[in-house]
Design a protein around this nucleic acid. Structure first.
Length: 111
DNA sequence: TGGCCTTTGAAGGTT
DNA sequence: AACCTTCAAAGGCCA
């Protein structure tokens, strides 16, 4: 695996860098990704994620709401496990490509 | 071997 | 307070 996490035992033993609470799509993705990847033959997750994103739009508001509630529960669980945890665990650690990938810029990341 | 590419949501960070 | 930037997942693909 690529990310070997150079973290020493002291870090990983106490708090192995707690991930941010996943949103509704991450939950939906984790369910549909293996299915879509198998049916579509999509190897790269980027393509699968995009495809699942379209599927998400096809979901009924009740179905979508289901994931929002599940995601909300994960926030609760996260809060219970780490009441003082801030999502800034890895903020700025992974430099996401070019800064300005937000749709607010021009819909797409600045060319 | 790590970062990219990709999705939306959440949430930190900046203004 | 409002706006913007980054991580969350994650698997092939590139430098």
């Amino acid at each position: 695996m690529c990310t070997q996490r150079r973290k020493h035992e002291d870090e990983s033993a106490s708090q192995p860098h707690i991930k941010k609470p996943r949103n509704a799509f991450m939950l939906f993705l984790n369910e549909q990704r293996p299915k879509v990847s198998a049916e579509k033959g999509m190897k790269s997750s980027a393509a699968v994620n995009a495809a699942v994103g379209q599927m998400w739009k096809s979901l009924s508001k009740e179905e979508q709401a289901k994931y929002y509630e599940e995601a909300e529960v994960e926030r609760r669980l996260h809060a219970q496990l780490y009441p003082n945890w801030s999502s800034a665990d890895n903020y700025g650690k992974k430099r996401k490509r070019v800064r300005s990938r937000t749709p607010a810029t021009t819909g797409k990341y600045a060319v």
